[in-house]
Design a protein around this nucleic acid. Sequence first.
DNA 1: TTCGCTGCAAACCATTTGCACCCAT
DNA 2: ATGGGTGCAAATGGTTTGCAGCGAA
Lengths: 160, 160
Amino acid sequence: MSKSKGIMPKASTTTQALKKYSEYLSRNGLKSTVQRDIIINEFLRVKGHLSVDELHSRLKLTHSSIGLATVYRTLKILSEAGLAHERQFQDGFTRYEYTGPGDVHHDHIVCVSCGHVEEFENRQIEELQKQEADRHHFKMLDHKFEIYGICKECQEKEQE
Amino acid sequence: MSKSKGIMPKASTTTQALKKYSEYLSRNGLKSTVQRDIIINEFLRVKGHLSVDELHSRLKLTHSSIGLATVYRTLKILSEAGLAHERQFQDGFTRYEYTGPGDVHHDHIVCVSCGHVEEFENRQIEELQKQEADRHHFKMLDHKFEIYGICKECQEKEQE
DNA sequence: TTCGCTGCAAACCATTTGCACCCAT
DNA sequence: ATGGGTGCAAATGGTTTGCAGCGAA
């Protein structure tokens, strides 16, 4: 769900992301390493809602020595750099989702049977949220909205 | 946020809850014990959004021998009996909230500073959710909607 | 050469479970 | 007396952290 607002994007989202990432590193006195590059490239390539363990398993296929802790630490950096969002659905894993530069806030609809995740944007819901926050005199910082259900494919499988 | 729909409620919510609970026990071959009674009575008395540890700490004041595992097990039973809802906000604890017989679905607005939780109902949001589920061909089972922010009291404290 | 980074193992921490004993039915 | 319940301690499992050696700047 990354949206390029410009008419003619000059660089791919991945290139922009890598740039933002390396800027974040130097601004914070952090170093570029081969492991981090491997992790980030795979993360940007997949663009799903990956759990740390899922990403680590993928990486092990081609880079067997990479440590789970390093994947955790790198995803935390991406999150702090504003390139990834931490998500917690109901399955006990923290998942990370890529966030592009022009991305609009969105929510999730999760299949409790197969784990499939779809995204949606809904302006009206966003607006109603703000109204509720105001009504309760809260300064809204964030929100979490997830719909849990059974996706089309799993409904069809159930009927067999 | 328990709403009695009747004009003249015959029994208090607590009494009704205890009845529902004991019915659940006998229907499932479970036993009534002093520990369970103590836990449930305190849970019904407080009616907040209690973490297991918070409830256990309260109970220890008057019943020092009560075990944490028993509190976990009893709240699980209450949840299965339909008298409590498991909630997970962002603080790493599972919280339990009392659910009365005529209760309408509601969502939460949570203060990230002091942990205070308020509730709200919003028909329009519920309706928009259903529309989103339909649009994505999901059979909706459940949802989770939380607004995170700073409550009025904490905003005032911040300014000092 | 300096520090940050890595992989490993150990630590964390909320929650669950195994077990020997207890008690409601 | 039977079999579920209890408290305790140990196990679980995702995530974090300490540490000795490694490598980028």
